[in-house]
Amino acid sequence: MTDAVDPGSTRAGAPAVVRLGDHAFDLSRRVAVMAIINRTPDSFYDRGRTDSLDAAVRAGAAAFDAGADLVDVGGVKFAPGPPVPVEEEIARVVPVVRELAPLGAVSVDTFHPEVARAAIDAGASVVNDTTGIHDPRMADVVADSTAAIVVAHSLAAPRTQLPLPHYDDVVAEVAVFLRQRVALAEERGIPRERIVVDPGHDLNKNTLQTLELTRRLDEVTDLGLPLLVALSNKDFVGESIGRDRDDRLAGSLAAAVYCVLHGARIVRVHNVRESIDAVRMVEAILGWREPVLLRHNLRPEGND
């Protein structure tokens, strides 16, 4: 069992401030919450509830109103399936990005450089590439902008299955992969202050591998970059506690809190309000923020 990192530290010289286009977040003593908006008819969790433009925009605006720091808009799910034409993906995500960008920092979840370029032009501040810069042109697109990039660990070609994934040491191999992909991003011109890493919970990993990755998350934090975790309602949560997809909130919050205490600074979530409450409570316990109210045992007796 590894020891938890000092949650107030920025391990290995990690940038305290991450720059996302016109937005900047000091993550040295704060956790950013990224809300998920899926404009897809077949997303694994919401199953198309935000597939329409109006529904996606409403959900994104509601997430910002609830206190989300970022909204991540996706037009194609990660899971294996038939390819979605680039033009169709652009048509799904760009109108949502354009509507939400005036409200706050917007991310686009894509592995296509053409989609990333169109989304950045529409106001996206972040490109969330769950394929770990599978196409090096993605780094060129981000470098030629002020947007940040999230580099996630996954091994299979986009939208294909990796049957029976095997790792000799899943954590060490994830760290090596991320280090190499970050080096590629920097070589292509993306400054370090605009790079975030994601260890890829459940992405080409089984539950035991994902639990090991979570348990030893501080070894990924040692890469010295802001760390995003995307674990909301995932299968490793459901399999760990025996809960179906719609009954994984408590398990997801527990996993998120554990990850924050081991160095995660951005959490990508479906359940925005509950996740914000969880991370703000952690911040208060750690002394990173003041309580919203101070009344208990501080008011004259009889005034409760």
Rank of each mutant, 00 (worst) to 15 (best):
R192W: 00
L213T: 13
S107D: 05
S145T: 11
Q161H: 13
P291L: 10
L294G: 07
T40I: 06
I285W: 08
Q161G: 05
L211K: 12
V229D: 00
D42Y: 01
R273V: 13
I190V: 13
V141N: 02
L203M: 13
F44R: 10
D46P: 09
L253V: 15
G81R: 09
D69N: 08
L208E: 14
I36R: 11
S240Q: 07
A157T: 11
G75E: 01
V84F: 01
V220K: 05
V174C: 07
V18S: 02
E193H: 13
P165S: 06
A118E: 10
N297I: 09
L213W: 14
D3T: 15
L217T: 10
P199H: 02
D247R: 15
H270Q: 03
S125G: 12
P291F: 02
L178K: 10
A148S: 09
T110N: 03
D3C: 10
V94I: 12
G224T: 10
D244E: 14
L217E: 01
A143M: 04
E212D: 11
I36L: 13
F78E: 01
G8I: 12
V126Q: 00
D65P: 04
A230W: 09
N128C: 04
M1I: 11
V142G: 03
L223C: 11
R215Q: 12
V170Q: 02
I241W: 15
D69G: 07
D72E: 04
P80E: 00
R215C: 04
P41S: 01
D46N: 05
D22P: 11
H153E: 03
Y258G: 02
R248S: 08
G302H: 02
D222G: 07
G21I: 05
A116M: 06
T40N: 01
V17D: 01
G60N: 04
G104W: 12
V108T: 08
K77Y: 09
D222A: 14
P226V: 08
L184W: 10
S275Y: 06
V282R: 07
L249M: 07
N303C: 13
D51F: 08
A230N: 12
D246S: 09
I133E: 00
A156T: 11
S28V: 06
Q209W: 13
G287W: 01
G75Q: 02
D6S: 07
L261S: 01
Q161M: 14
D246I: 15
A61N: 06
I266H: 04
R265T: 13
D6P: 14
L293H: 14
E239G: 04
G123L: 02
N303W: 15
R39C: 04
I90H: 01
V229E: 01
F111C: 11
I149L: 09
F236A: 06
L164I: 13
P102I: 08
D129T: 12
Y167I: 06
H166A: 15
V260N: 00
G13A: 02
R268E: 05
V142Q: 03
A124I: 14
H296R: 13
A172K: 15
T130V: 15
G224A: 10
E283G: 08
L298H: 14
Y258T: 07
L227W: 13
N206S: 03
M1H: 12
R273C: 06
P95M: 01
P85D: 00
G251W: 13
P82L: 07
V18Q: 00
G224M: 07
A255E: 00
V76H: 11
V57C: 03
V71Q: 06
D235M: 06
